[in-house]
Simulated assay, not measured.
Amino acid sequence: MYIFMTGGTGFLGGRLAKELIERGHRICMLARTPEKVNAQFTVEERKSIDVLPGDLTAHALGANEQFIDSHKGKIDLFLHMAALVKFDEELRDELFETNVTGTKEALRLAKLIDVPRFFHVSTAYTLGAKEVGGETLYDVSQSFLNPYEESKAHAEQAVWQSRDELDVSIFRPAIIVGDSKTGEADSKFTMYGYMRALELFKRKLERRGHDFESIRLIGS
């Protein structure tokens, strides 16, 4: 298949892109800078990657008429994975611009180039303050724990509203903890930075000669 992909240089997207290439698929990848693609993928992998220099919040992700004309009807699947994953209330505007506007522009481009299928990678936490989730859209007027969750719930609504024009699917991964065999994770966001800090804390204590079996941390 020929797959258009956003978020292909991210934590989850980068691993998936490599897997798709290994399986013989070709990828057209949105990237703000082609240099990031060059740094993340091998020379052999880059033979299966076309790059669209653009931005999530740009009109049609920054695709010009030449790109649209040359790719119309040639993309089999649009895989939208790019998102801003931060939880600070002061970043609400940026979160909505990236996660909601970015999704709407991805949908716009998918329609312009006549992509039949649109896969949107969301999050399990669009259920907000609810404790039981379901395979349904959640009311965006409910309570959310942070603006990231709220923005992703709005993005899901935008995707679902396009179901008459595109064959849409919404995927909701929960917390991703790295490679299932090696534990490798290259993200510094959410729990990963915290786990890294604990590792450094443990090493400092060991260097100072502390002998311990376990340490209990009290946190809010």
Rank of each mutant, 00 (worst) to 15 (best):
156 E>M: 13
141 S>G: 13
191 M>D: 06
26 R>T: 12
50 D>E: 13
1 M>L: 15
150 E>C: 03
46 R>M: 15
12 L>E: 03
77 L>Q: 04
132 V>Q: 08
112 L>K: 09
198 L>W: 08
125 Y>I: 06
133 G>I: 05
96 F>Q: 02
87 F>R: 07
143 S>D: 09
57 T>H: 05
103 T>W: 05
182 T>I: 07
137 L>A: 13
60 A>K: 14
87 F>D: 10
138 Y>D: 07
27 I>A: 01
3 I>G: 00
20 L>M: 10
129 A>N: 10
166 L>K: 01
64 N>C: 06
147 P>L: 06
209 G>W: 09
8 G>N: 06
72 K>A: 14
78 F>W: 09
57 T>L: 10
150 E>K: 06
37 V>A: 00
79 L>I: 06
137 L>N: 08
76 D>T: 04
51 V>W: 01
99 N>I: 04
66 Q>V: 14
62 G>T: 05
77 L>T: 05
69 D>L: 10
149 E>A: 06
11 F>Y: 13
135 E>R: 13
207 R>Q: 15
48 S>D: 01
78 F>H: 02
180 S>E: 11
120 H>T: 02
217 L>G: 14
51 V>F: 04
195 M>D: 14
57 T>S: 12
181 K>R: 11
197 A>S: 13
101 T>V: 11
8 G>P: 05
205 L>Y: 01
63 A>G: 00
165 E>C: 09
111 K>L: 04
64 N>I: 13
